[in-house]
Simulated assay, not measured.
Amino acid sequence: MSYTTFDFSVADHVAHLRFNRPDKRNAMNRAFWQEIRHVFAAEIGTQRADVRVVVISSTGPHFTAGMDLSAFTDIAAVTGDPARRRERFRRELLAYQDSFTVIEKCRVPVLAAIQGGCIGGGVDMVSACDMRYCTGDAFFVIKEIDLGMTADVGTLQRLPHLIPQGLVRELAYTGRNMPADEALRCGLVNRVYNDQQAMLDDVMGIARDIAAKSPLAVHGSKEMINYARDHTVDEALNYMSVWNAAFIHGEDMPEAFRAMQEKRPPRFLDLAVGDKS
């Protein structure tokens, strides 16, 4: 499938998804929400066995301005019985939410490389990523409060797991900018870079390092971290025992030990792909 709101390429087991609407500040129009869901749920999720890591980056001075205002116009244009309008709105909102939930549930790590403004829906999206990196001019804004609405696509559900509760509340209630240095101090981003090219070079290097590891072990690590976030320690430990009982007896550990003994890079099989159903 060809995409209209971002470029998509794969090299060295790393998929690179790059927003390509800089003239619109990479605002998320209706096509974007459909395309982002398709690339993660279908292409990366069930078709591309060679993808082991995903990097999301952008073009122009800003990462994304968030929701394109045309999407709000589409919602307001719906007419008819009030109850049915609201039922339709709920279904559409769940679909918007799923557009970023597929990032969180993607079995491979997803890294976000952010420059300039990461606004509104941009915060929803990067909150669903595994790691975030940014340039010194980056800033993060929960902009929905200034539009008279509550952020509803994942920020308020995921951000409290990434940074302190009091800070989340301040950002959500005030709509103020969080600059890059503050994002680094509170742990929202892992590193801050002088410019976008330096950031992309380093983030791609991190992605290649991850891609060189056992894809099954990386997938298991992401699964366990996400599960532990949402469950008790006892529940997470129990799930860990089931996971390793199922997957530790494959070829990856023997290959890792052989590679160490032979002083060479390990050669791991790709994960299997196929229809989720």
Rank of each mutant, 00 (worst) to 15 (best):
P164Y: 08
M28W: 13
G148D: 03
F63P: 03
A42R: 14
M204H: 11
R176M: 06
S58A: 15
H38Y: 15
A95M: 11
G121E: 08
E35V: 07
Q261K: 11
M178E: 01
R18A: 10
G121I: 06
D201M: 02
L17F: 02
L188K: 08
D23W: 12
G166N: 13
G148Q: 03
R84W: 00
A27M: 05
N194C: 04
S57R: 06
E144Y: 03
H249R: 11
E255S: 01
G117A: 13
Y173R: 13
A138C: 07
Y173W: 12
M131P: 00
M260Y: 01
M1F: 02
S241E: 08
G45V: 04
I225S: 13
A42Y: 12
G120L: 09
F6T: 01
N177D: 06
T232F: 07
M28Q: 14
N238L: 02
M67L: 14
Y173M: 13
A27R: 12
Q157T: 12
L188R: 08
F19M: 13
T4A: 10
A180T: 01
H231T: 06
G220R: 01
L167E: 14
E182S: 03
D81C: 02
P22F: 05
A77Y: 00
G205N: 10
Y96F: 15
A212C: 12
D124Q: 09
D234T: 08
T64E: 03
R264E: 02
D81P: 01
R264S: 06
M28G: 07
Y96V: 12
A256D: 05
I142V: 15
I142A: 11
V242Y: 05
H38A: 15
T101S: 08
A236P: 03
D81Y: 03
V192A: 12
V192I: 15
A138R: 05
A207N: 01
C118R: 11
V192T: 14
A217S: 11
N190S: 09
F8G: 01
M260K: 01
H161Y: 13
R169I: 00
F257D: 06
D152E: 10
D124G: 13
R185C: 01
G148K: 04
L216M: 12
L94N: 04
Y96E: 11
R84S: 03
G205A: 04
V203K: 11
N190E: 15
D181G: 00
